[in-house]
Amino acid sequence: MSLQFSVLASGSTGNAIYVQTEKARLLVDAGLSMKTIKKLFLDAGCCGLEELDGILITHEHSDHIKGLGALARKYKLPVYANDKTWSAMNANIGTVDDAQKFTFEMESVRTFGDLEVESFGVSHDAAEPMFYVFHHEGKKLTLMTDTGYVSDRMKGITKHSDAYVMESNHDINMLMMGRYPWSIKRRILSDHGHISNEDCGFALADLIGEQTKRIYLAHLSKDNNMKDIAYLSVKQTLESKGVAVGEQVSLYHTDASEPTELIRL
């Protein structure tokens, strides 16, 4: 079995991504109810929840950990997060047995069966947010959302991936004209907020390599973005940088309530 994944849900209302190989089955974040995550697993054709080797947490915001405690308790699953994230989220996930709690520090690598997982820091208003790169038999999958910008260091770790699940959070005009108070708009636009459609495209232009084939636009704002706007904005930005969308790489939507198919790299 090659490296496979499904973006089960992505958006401001909840996030969860499934990754598997022949010998590893992992869930990244659990930002929806246990009932919803179970349904998404079935809809996407993933393994049974009891077959998971662990849950990797990116940061403590509720749209990433809402169902974590319930899942961990019911299925006795190992949970991996860095120390600062553990401290920040402990009070919000209920009682989880200490034997199920594992530390996965930023900018380190852990091996799960035949899958190597590399963590890297992002810029977001959380205790110590980090995302992951998955390596398996020469294939590379990068997950990167919830960041206010993409630094050169982040680019160095994630460049030339076969596939990206990449934040394309907001359209700047929709955000500025929308109903959010200025304090929230300022937070979203800050270096510790979320990247816009246009900035997603500029970052991807620096990341794409010859083997990059798939880009999944993720964590779209319910109020400040639309799938078609995100797609067109990222496409236009990439093409302005000489990337042939539809020929060199393909762009795909993700959804807040429906999973992608189980994608094979």
Results as ranks from 00 to 15, higher is better:
201 G>S: 08
32 L>Q: 03
215 I>V: 15
248 Q>S: 14
74 K>H: 10
70 A>C: 01
159 K>Y: 12
151 S>I: 04
197 N>L: 02
3 L>E: 09
145 T>F: 05
214 R>E: 13
103 T>K: 09
265 L>T: 04
227 K>R: 11
54 G>H: 08
12 S>G: 01
168 S>G: 13
16 A>K: 01
178 G>C: 11
96 V>F: 06
113 G>I: 09
79 V>F: 05
114 D>I: 04
58 T>N: 14
231 Y>A: 01
109 V>R: 10
152 D>N: 10
141 L>M: 04
17 I>M: 11
63 D>T: 13
98 D>I: 05
86 W>C: 06
104 F>Q: 12
226 M>L: 02
89 M>P: 04
181 P>I: 02
138 G>F: 07
111 T>R: 14
178 G>R: 06
147 T>L: 04
15 N>Y: 07
40 L>Q: 10
31 G>S: 09
6 S>L: 02
112 F>Y: 15
84 K>I: 00
265 L>C: 14
176 M>L: 15
177 M>C: 12
70 A>V: 05
195 I>L: 03
91 A>M: 02
46 C>V: 02
203 A>T: 03
97 D>G: 06
137 E>Q: 14
136 H>G: 04
89 M>K: 01
236 Q>A: 06
36 T>M: 11
25 R>H: 11
19 V>S: 08
95 T>V: 12
37 I>Y: 06
216 Y>K: 03
46 C>K: 06
58 T>I: 00
264 R>D: 15
253 H>Y: 15
